[in-house]
Design a protein around this nucleic acid. Structure first.
Lengths: 233, 233
DNA sequence: TATAATTTTATGTATGTACATATTAGTCTG
DNA sequence: CAGACTAATATGTACATACATAAAATTATA
């Protein structure tokens, strides 16, 4: 049998995906092991390994030592979302970016905020409210709490010309975080700021950022009706 | 100088991330090349390569042949979202899943639907409306159009006991797709089905699925107020 | 001096070998 | 027959080497 040589991890990945897609390897089925595939494809096991590792990362196959590799029964669709700096998001959509600071105060945050940040309930934090605009129209309303314990330098920054978003990125390293997407109705104040009607549905992104065990900031971004977050799978 | 040996790709990744996080390697800065790092860490270049490749995938560094590797100036937060089958999503939250078919018809879809699916505007498609419930309460309202051209077998399926979601996963292979997240206000019908009030903000997920060049299905999932999509970054 | 050809260099990939590790399957033993 | 060892096996990782490739830097050329 004269098999074509498939000797790049990309081609191995493509071929394996093809076999799964065409049901040549059915869901739940055990596929040949790396050594056999390497032999069949005419490449090294490391090459097969890299391809299969990528496919496993995408959720299409499950791999376990000794047990082997099998096609996932119900592949989860795994989407990768890029959450850029808002300025870039706006500029990438071909609009000119501008920024408007609405308020900057030191205050004790609502209990829900200090609780999710795992910070003492009575400690004051920096509270920044700002509007991001694209082509002079409201694009997103930012409501941010910054832990002064974690980022004391923020006390010196007015956030009038540079957004807290970018300032923090440049000045407060972070290790991990959590993002939450949701929908809520615009209150009267939200509506006025986002130039929409009260009661309309806003898309909301909450982000909580940590540096190791210390909460850095919690930001809530409210987008006016019509905003869409899109990604390929 | 007696350097500790860092000879697993995990430890290399951790150490590099640490240096970036502590600003030992500042944003925008060129970091040592793979060969030098391998020498310093006491491991093979392939090991450094794998670690750096992963870090690049996460958006923290930018790599270019010959130009070298530099710390990203404004790292995009890259979030990976798992979109499981709804049944699993509900069961993973510890609720018992149930499913209610609301309607199943063959009809010509609205123009917006046929257009995004790149299918002839006058062709009838299968239209399935169903409710997914957790612990007997509405969890998500599904509104789905299925291309009969791409999945003729769907005509034989009643979707009364098995949801179109799971049936399609098992019977219609797909190669890629697109997901859109948004927020909209509940109409009167939505509200009745999702047991909420008209006008309240629903979280909406639109998914468009393709098999190579043929659109398979377009599904819109509406979630009642309070629903959150969460992920770690 | 602008442009084209060439060299250099850092990353990207492929390979064979070796060993580590998790997990299953089998076997031994009380 | 239950439970404890033991062998077998597929994936996971590390390494040294080699060559491929993109792009910057340099040199040659019109």
């Amino acid at each position: 049998m004269n098999r074509p040589i498939i000797n790049s991890w990309q081609s191995v990945e493509q071929e394996v995906r093809r076999r799964i897609q065409t049901r040549e390897w059915a869901p739940g089925e055990l596929i040949p092991n790396e050594a056999d595939l390497a032999l069949e494809f005419g490449c090294a096991r490391a090459t097969v390994n890299r391809a299969l590792r990528r496919i496993a990362d995408s959720g299409l196959i499950d791999r376990r030592r000794k047990a082997g590799t099998r096609v996932a029964l119900q592949p989860v669709a795994r989407a990768t979302l890029d959450i850029p700096v808002i300025r870039r998001e706006i500029e990438d959509r071909g609009m000119t970016y501008s920024y408007l600071l609405l308020s900057r105060t030191e205050a004790v945050p609502p209990h829900a905020v200090s609780a999710t940040m795992q910070l003492p309930a009575h400690d004051a934090q920096l509270h920044v409210v700002a509007l991001h605009l694209g082509n002079e129209t409201p694009y997103a309303l930012e409501d941010r709490w910054i832990s002064l314990a974690a980022v004391p330098a923020a006390r010196q920054e007015r956030f009038e010309s540079v957004s807290s978003n970018e300032w923090l990125l440049a000045n407060a390293p972070w290790s991990h975080g959590q993002i939450t997407f949701a929908a809520t109705q615009a209150g009267r104040e939200d509506a006025a700021r986002l130039a929409c009607d009260p009661g309309q549905a806003m898309f909301v992104i909450d982000r909580l950022t940590w540096n190791n065990n210390a909460a850095i900031t919690r930001v809530r971004l409210k987008y006016p009706p019509g905003y869409q977050l899109r990604t390929d799978i």
